[in-house]
């Protein structure tokens, strides 16, 4: 199984994990963060528990996090 990390801007990558339930949005986000190392990651999830949990978990790990609702999903912006 492969995740697709799309570069949407200089140093900004997007990961779409819609359709995944907990804990996979978190696990896939951590894999993507390991990959991009620096820059900003924007994760798209439609799983409400992930929108609740991801900002908490990532802030605990020292990331800056912004959560935005976009229609039926959330966009979570993550950077150091």
């Amino acid at each position: 199984m492969e995740l697709k990390l799309k570069q949407i801007n200089d140093d900004v990558f997007e990961l779409d994990v819609r359709g995944n339930t907990c804990p996979f949005p978190q696990i896939f986000t951590e894999l993507a963060l390991k990959r991009i190392e620096s820059g900003r990651l924007e994760v798209i999830t439609d799983n409400p528990p992930s929108a609740r949990d991801l900002p908490i978990v990532l802030k605990r790990r020292g990331y800056q996090v912004e959560l935005e609702k976009e229609g039926d999903h959330w966009r979570i912006k993550i950077w150091k």
Binding site: M1, E2, K4, L5, K6, Q7, I8, A32, R35
Partner: peptide, 14 residues
């Protein structure tokens, strides 16, 4: 745009 593939390896079995 650039796309990067990440193979999730054994996690995929879950």
């Amino acid at each position: 745009s650039m796309e990067i593939s990440i193979d999730v390896g054994e996690i995929g079995k879950f």
